[in-house]
């Protein structure tokens, strides 16, 4: 995976170099962007790059936590009770069509351009998707294992701990990862509308300046952190769920 990832990175870089060589005025090359990176990290409007990044990270963390806190109980309840499932699922196709932008703008005005605006917008826009993914995982509980436990007279608590929890946990992790990747984007979108700090505010600033090189440098910082974060979550997941790995039975 890491070797392939490296190969992929090289391909991206090559394409970038080639494109910027063809149209240097339109697309600054990787070197030009890299040169601006230290400046973006060390200084900038309304604080240095790390301040913006930290502010965004904090909002992402809080919004993801709140989103999970809603999604997990609702998702599990949907798996356990058909009526709850029916009640929630009526709304899902319609919910899919609610534009994030409208949620963000309404949230901004509703909570007067505060941190609460960002978190509320993210929770409204992203939680339903996380709920669905928890529900799918929890609905996956193997009925035959439940019968097996009944045959051996296993008590309810053990069944919850040994059968339900292991089935739900990967789903919770999966939806946390999913939620995280969505939350980032919504936070950035929200920050471009009337926030002074955060990566979104930084992107908007350089956009207003018309400075594409600086915009791409800020983007590089953002993407770098994102990729690292995703890799960390995936790594933790793999350690936690090592039993899922199929090992060939060459014995």
């Amino acid at each position: 995976m890491s070797r392939r990832g490296l190969g992929g990175g090289v391909v991206v870089l090559l394409c970038w170099v080639l494109a910027s060589a063809l149209a240097p005025t339109l697309l600054p090359g990787p070197l030009a962007v890299a040169e601006r990176l230290p400046e973006i990290v060390a200084s900038g409007p309304g604080g240095n790059g790390l301040t913006h990044l930290g502010r965004s990270l904090l909002r992402v963390a809080v919004a993801t936590a709140v989103g999970l806190a809603v999604a997990v109980p609702v998702g599990v309840a949907m798996a356990v009770d058909d009526r709850i499932e029916a009640g929630v699922s009526v709304w899902l196709p319609f919910w899919m069509t609610i534009p994030t932008l409208v949620v963000v703008l309404v949230g901004m005005v509703l909570f007067s351009f505060s941190d609460l605006s960002v978190v509320a917008a993210v929770v409204v826009a992203a939680t339903p998707f996380a709920t669905v993914s928890v529900h799918e995982g929890a609905a996956d509980v193997d009925r035959e294992l439940l019968d097996m436990a009944a045959a051996f007279g296993v008590d309810r608590r053990s069944v919850l701990r040994e059968i339900y929890l292991p089935a739900i946990l990967p789903a919770v992790f999966g939806s946390a990862r999913y939620l995280l990747s969505m939350v980032w984007k919504i936070v950035v979108l929200a920050e471009t509308f009337g926030m002074n700090r955060g990566m979104g505010a930084l992107f908007r600033f350089w956009f207003n300046e018309g400075d594409l090189t600086a915009l791409l440098a800020a983007l590089a910082l953002f993407v770098g952190v994102m990729v690292a974060l995703q890799a960390a979550v995936t790594g933790a997941e793999r350690r936690l769920f090592h039993w899922r790995e199929d090992v060939p039975t060459a014995r």
Partner: peptide, 9 residues
Amino acid sequence: VLLTVPSVV
């Protein structure tokens, strides 16, 4: 990488 770039950008 394309997937991690926010749409506003």
